[in-house]
């Protein structure tokens, strides 16, 4: 699978001041988030999700269930989508982490963000950053020829990105508003665009 970190170049930001931990084992580490390096000193129990939200104040990544059961915390590590709740911050030193904030900004939307906006692919918006990061990661997986549970024959390559494929591949992101039909439309718009929707 190709290593690609989708996102736009952002100016370096000073590291946020972490909460001072006491008592429990802590560790100093540097996290590379959206091409900005942050120095942290965290309780080793801190999940990547809590490090992003509570220490770096990058709250675009959402906490929905904290157990890998909803997908709201989806971020891209070296271009791959994962649940930030089920991994420790200390395990990600040196990794290129991309969050929703690294994909685009209100005045400079990533194509996937623009498609979600255009298709009304969100309601309350809480699952939305995770959906978007997941969709961006998903299109990279499709381009790499990865099969899914919806693929009729896992031996075939490349995979045809049918609606059924998108639905299955996006099923790790729950949306309680059930914006799914519009999420599908948004992803389809991007996937049928240049470069199969993959970020440059």
């Amino acid at each position: 699978m190709p290593k690609s970190t989708p996102g736009v170049e952002r100016a370096a930001r000073p590291a946020a001041k972490p909460a001072a931990p006491t008592g429990a084992p802590t560790q100093k580490l540097e996290l590379e988030v959206n091409r900005t390096s942050y120095a942290l000193d965290v309780d080793v129990r801190t999940s990547l999700l809590d490090a992003l939200r509570e220490h770096l104040h990058l709250t675009g990544t959402k906490k929905g269930c904290d157990h890998g059961q909803c997908g709201a915390c989806t971020v891209l590590i070296e271009g791959r989508r994962i649940n930030a709740c089920l991994t420790l911050a200390v395990m990600h030193e040196g990794d290129q982490i991309t969050t929703i904030e690294g994909l685009g900004a209100p005045e400079a939307l990533h194509p996937m963000q623009a498609a979600f906006l255009a298709r009304d692919a969100l309601q309350c918006g809480y699952c939305t950053p995770g959906q978007i990061c997941s969709a961006v990661g998903m299109l990279v997986e499709v381009a790499a020829g990865w099969p899914s549970h919806a693929t009729p024959d896992v031996g075939t390559r490349p995979v045809e990105l049918t609606d059924g494929e998108i639905r299955e591949r996006m099923s790790g992101n729950l949306c309680r508003c059930c914006a799914y039909p519009n999420i599908l439309a948004a992803i389809r718009d991007v996937a049928s665009g240049p470069n199969g929707g993959r970020s440059p």
């Binding site: 969050t99 929703i100 904030e101 685009g104 963000q113 979600f116 255009a118 009304d120 950053p129 978007i132």
Partner: peptide, 15 residues
Amino acid sequence: PRIDAPKKVTGTATY
């Protein structure tokens, strides 16, 4: 389009 969508799709709407 929702006027709050630019913030919601970029993670800058603060809950």
